[in-house]
Design a protein around this nucleic acid. Structure first.
Lengths: 95, 95
DNA sequence: GAACTATTTAGAAAGCTATCTAAATAGTTC
DNA sequence: GAACTATTTAGATAGCTTTCTAAATAGTTC
């Protein structure tokens, strides 16, 4: 059950912002790091967590490492949130 | 921007399980705590975080405190996840 | 109002997370 | 192969989270 890792991964604002940056195109580790006022090492740490959670995938090219969104993993989380929303109909409170 | 608090709240497995238990009916703090092998104080702490994140709402009755799902707050998270999924079409990798 | 029941708050400890700097790795180019 | 560029790993640290036990609060019942 990797759902927990996935939810933890998106619980951090830096990591969500990285994901947002990857919505439209892939980016190298350096390009991603440039968007933050954090050391490259710190951003690399966040990228590692996103990769472990399956939210991004990685391709090496020259001496760049490109990250791209792996949207299928979002489905699991969507499914969980959906299931929560569904049942909020008659919520029987026996006054 | 309370989205961060909301994502953090669901990042913990105990809290997700609490929410799952509330899908079909409200429960008192004691009923919720009985489902876990954790002290009542610990469960109370998790309930506080869920309440602060707006994911549950609270009614007092006799000397019981009832918790129920507040599904509207899930919408925000759903919207974020959706926006992530949308853009994963042509992801232009110029090979 | 005394005893009881349900829940929360306080304080402390263990473990986890995010961050940094410095060093290591790995691949490129001349 | 030496120098350069991009990225990751290692080790350290501060701060946050989860958990506990004990005590406090608050409401109920007789």
């Amino acid at each position: 059950m990797a759902l927990n890792q996935t939810f933890k991964a998106i619980a951090d604002p830096v990591r969500r912002q990285i994901l947002e940056g990857l919505r439209t195109q892939r980016q190298s580790a350096g390009e991603i790091a440039a968007e933050f006022q954090l050391s490259q090492a710190t951003v690399s740490y966040h990228l590692k967590l996103l990769k472990q959670a399956g939210l991004v995938s990685v391709t090496k090219e020259k001496n760049f490492v490109y990250y791209e969104l792996n949207a299928s993993v979002f489905e699991e989380m969507l499914a969980w949130l959906y299931s929560m929303r569904q049942d909020e109909r008659g919520n029987q409170r026996e006054k």
